[in-house]
Design a protein around this nucleic acid. Sequence first.
RNA 1: GCGCCUGUAGCUCAGUCGGAUAGAGCGAUAGACUUCGAAUCUAAAGGUCGGGGGUUCGAUUCCCUCCAGGCGCGCCA
Length: 595
Amino acid sequence: MLEIWVRDAISDVLRSYLKDIGQENDIATLLPKGIRLEFPKKEGFGEISTPLAMHLSPLLKISPRKIAETLSPALASFPLFRSVDIAGPGYLNFTFSEESIRETLRKILDPHSDLVVPEEGKRRILLEFVSANPTGPLHVGHGRGAAYGDALSRVLKAAGHDVTTEYYINDAGNQMEMLGRSTCLAWRKLQRTVSESEETDFLKGATPYKGDYIREIAQEMIDTPGLLSVEEARAALDPEAPESSYLSRFTEFSQDRIMDGIREDLRQFGVPFDVFFSEKVLHEKKEGEGSDAISRWIGRIREASADAREHSVPDVYESDGALWLRTTVLGDDKDRVLLRSDGRLTYFAADIAYHALKMERGFDVLIDVWGADHHGYIPRMDAAVRTLSRLLDRPVEFRVALIQLVSLVRDGRPVSMSTRGGEFVTLREVLDEVGNDATRFSYLTRSHESSLEFDLNKAKERSMDNPVYYVQYAHARVKSLLRQADARGLPIPSVWTAADLESLGEPAERDLVRFLDRFSMIVNDVSRSLEVHPLTEYLTDLAGRYHHFYFHHRILSQEPQDRSLTFARIALSVAVGRVLEKGLGLLGISAPDVM
RNA sequence: GCGCCUGUAGCUCAGUCGGAUAGAGCGAUAGACUUCGAAUCUAAAGGUCGGGGGUUCGAUUCCCUCCAGGCGCGCCA
């Protein structure tokens, strides 16, 4: 709130200043990036400051010092401030009044306030994340996407948006058949020996999915009577029998089992999804050839092709017997095939239909969370969405968050991982070993755009190496303090008055209040930038500040003359507890009362 | 070869769309529990911000170039 109040005060004063000096342009024109506010780390530069005068100086052809000198008296007259100082080349450094600080704390304590100021312009957002292929259990890389996407969805909701979370199941295409063959092969091997040549023939030279989970699924198929008819079982054992007579059984069963496992992993991790969207749906032909969603959307784009060209949006053309989308007009490296020369649709075509449906469902922001190895896919998808946007005459914001790699470290050594080889560490294993809260926190301490080193030993440690406990401890500490206050017969009001906060005022207390006040801004920044880690960092910082304060200040005093101060400090602690709880909640991490 | 990400303290990383003396944790060093929870706190140490140019009153931040690492460049998904 303080930040907003300061901004308003400056705008107010600046507006009349510009008028006085005969400046035609308004603030928005002069300062397209807005009025910059800073939170000086060092003492002596005020509690909040702005380099505004330096920014205006070249535009107004007036020295920054002079601008600052004109603005500062007007600003100083606001009850918001205790003082406004000019420093250095022309910084305006503000110090808040006691009333401002108390009012800020009162707002944080207000049980009816949300702690986060909603953003202007509520938007309908579809947030798609994880979307791992159902060919194996979730591994630690997926876990990062899950933790990130879930936290982001909570933040976006807190910022006032209407968010739907979605998991796209890539359950169509030849990788699914490969999965079926992999299970079938394991199934055969459980019943008889399989020669190398038979294996190679069967797999058509490709590498199968391996790993215990494939064998377990195969075993389950053997153990469950009735899954395969006698004919199907006989055919599946016979290398000469046509694949079509049995393979789909293996494919479907494997996929269902794996998807069940993924859902269970996500449930255990505390990552709910509003929608699981199956790619298969896009391929369904309810009314004969060409009636599937993909064909229909490709058809529509094709029809609008001439119009597209006029508007510099990709058009569709035929070449080498295939159908292409001219994505290069929007910056892609090369044009992309929609319909292959053999008549089969590409994955890209399916993705276009999928995103078209997202738009048709009424979302105005589409956020896709992808693994960093898909970054080459962004230009074509972006081109596709813009094509669809033009086609549907609907403005849509499309954003992709790329999640960089996670490398696991155990005992100081990297743990090697490869999905196909079945040699990977699953999310489940990490959760069982490290626990939910520590796992999520570890994932969210770094920018998603940086590769992450996940140290299993450190994630389990209960030290500052693993700040989740540091933050949770601060929360538990507040709760413990309140229990102690209660035991001593100190009533804790549900609504705090300005009088309760009367004794608040020493720098350490002011600093805490001002820091608490920044919470909303941090959350709003996350919502805009899609960078979640500043919130994690903020909470660690806040916890540290509270621990520091706690260590150096007696909060519950027995002396009668300290009663007012005791109340003020309890209020401050309650506020810290509220913000920690809210912040941890946004990250999907628990805020325990006792540890 | 082209594109994207990354390069900041011994290690892992922050660094507010260009701002004041570049920050934090870990590790290593030295300390603090008779009082609200020591899963905490305190002190001091640690830097050519990968190298070199440029733009600017001001560059870790923007531009160019070089070096190093990761990833991606299919009518695969």
